[in-house]
Amino acid sequence: MNIPRRIGLTGSIGAGKSTVAALLRARGLTVLDADEQARLVTQDPEVLGLLAARFPGVVVDGTLDRAALAGRVFGDPAALADLNGVTHPRVRARMAALEARAAARGEQAVVQDVPLLFEGGLDAQMDAVIVVDAPLSLRVQRVMARSGLTEAEVLARDARQMPADQKRARATVVIDNDRDLPHLEMQVDRALRQLGLGG
């Protein structure tokens, strides 16, 4: 049976990982988005029941209040571990099923877009890892513009992730997203060539 190469895609908050994921899709690669699968998992009535029991008040009229849940787990390692214990195995199962479908289609590579790839130890399961990076000041500006968070809030979230320089050191390929879109596209194509995936 065909087993596609597994390419991890990650980057610090505001680096532009989602933009790179879209560019990879545009080049014909299957990109599996862990965040998207997590959203789907948290629409499952069984999961909602588990979350409502552990975090009273975060499920309202059968819908997860993501902001309320984030507020409950941010800065609370035990609460975050409980949340991850409910969601992570289900997200991994969904990602594995999607990967199996890609394998059945005969695809040579599958990209797994995982924000906390290194933090979760998932890099060990990848054949290669692409890290998207940009200077901290630029990343902070981007997140503030899109989310309404304050600079302090963005910096606090960034501080909870592995430092960008450590991610760069562990990457197979680094894409610097510090200029315009044409420059980013050139870097994506170069990364694909480096990984033997055309481009």
Rank of each mutant, 00 (worst) to 15 (best):
Q194S: 14
E151T: 04
T19E: 11
F55Y: 05
P77Q: 03
A134G: 05
A171E: 02
M126I: 13
D133T: 14
E107I: 12
L32K: 02
V47M: 05
E46Q: 13
V188M: 12
L83C: 09
M1R: 10
V114F: 06
A34W: 01
G49L: 03
A169N: 12
L50F: 02
D180H: 10
P163W: 10
A156S: 11
L48M: 06
L117A: 11
I7Y: 05
L24F: 09
D180G: 12
A96K: 07
V111A: 08
S137Q: 07
V111W: 04
A164C: 08
R190S: 15
R72T: 04
A124L: 14
E99P: 06
G11R: 00
A97Y: 08
V129Y: 02
V143K: 01
G11S: 05
S147L: 04
I130P: 05
D76I: 01
M186N: 10
R139D: 00
Q108Y: 08
A100M: 07
M126T: 12
R170L: 15
R5K: 15
E119L: 02
E36M: 11
L29P: 05
Q37R: 12
R27P: 03
K167W: 01
P182I: 12
G199A: 14
Q43C: 15
A22V: 11
D61L: 05
D44A: 09
R5T: 09
P45W: 10
D123A: 15
A159Q: 00
V188C: 13
V47L: 06
E119Y: 02
L32F: 06
